[in-house]
């Protein structure tokens, strides 16, 4: 019995040794495979969610994301919608957004990209105010806080 245990232990230790030797040269390959696992996606609460629709205005494209209400097991009552301006953004931005595409405007967002300053004027009971808003590497992005039921 002792002999079996000893052999098993030493085999396990040598497997560890092999794993350590191949770990660093193989890291990018292992990470790539690991990164494709189904749960290896950034939660929409952090990524901003999928883009719902885009509009072009000259050199700048406006992208409105799908609203994010994700919770652990079901949607929450509070969330946000992300709006991006990509490309060459103007000094002053002012857009009226209908994020749920029901042909009724939901909020007006104004950004002074030079100052920088942002403001959001809710037009619907579901919009509760401006969340984070900042210059990004692709232009400007803002998150507008929402609640599910007005």
């Amino acid at each position: 019995m002792n002999k079996i245990k000893t052999t098993a232990g030493i085999t396990w230790a040598f497997l560890g040794l092999i794993l350590m030797i191949i770990l660093f040269p193989g890291l990018s390959g292992f990470s790539k495979s690991f990164g494709t696992l189904p749960f290896m996606k950034i939660n929409p609460r952090y990524s901003g969610g999928e883009v719902a629709f885009t509009q072009s205005a000259g050199a700048c494209t406006l992208a409105v994301h799908k609203p994010v209400f994700n919770g652990l097991v079901r949607d929450r009552n509070t969330g946000f919608v992300q709006v991006d301006w990509r490309g060459k953004i103007p000094d002053q931005i002012r857009d009226t957004i209908d994020y749920d595409n029901d042909n009724v405007p939901d909020f007006v967002i104004a950004v002074d990209t030079k100052k920088p300053a942002s403001d959001c004027c809710p037009l619907s009971g579901r919009v509760t105010g401006l969340g984070i808003s900042s210059r990004t590497s692709f232009g400007w992005a803002a998150r507008i806080n929402l609640r599910k039921t007005p």
């Binding site: 990470s31 996606k41 939660n43 952090y46």
Partner: peptide, 22 residues
Amino acid sequence: TKSIIFPGTILGGFADIASMVV
């Protein structure tokens, strides 16, 4: 939720999630 609750990068870039977990 089949997702990661962290504002990081899954792959590539400095200290990405996949490499650190591996």
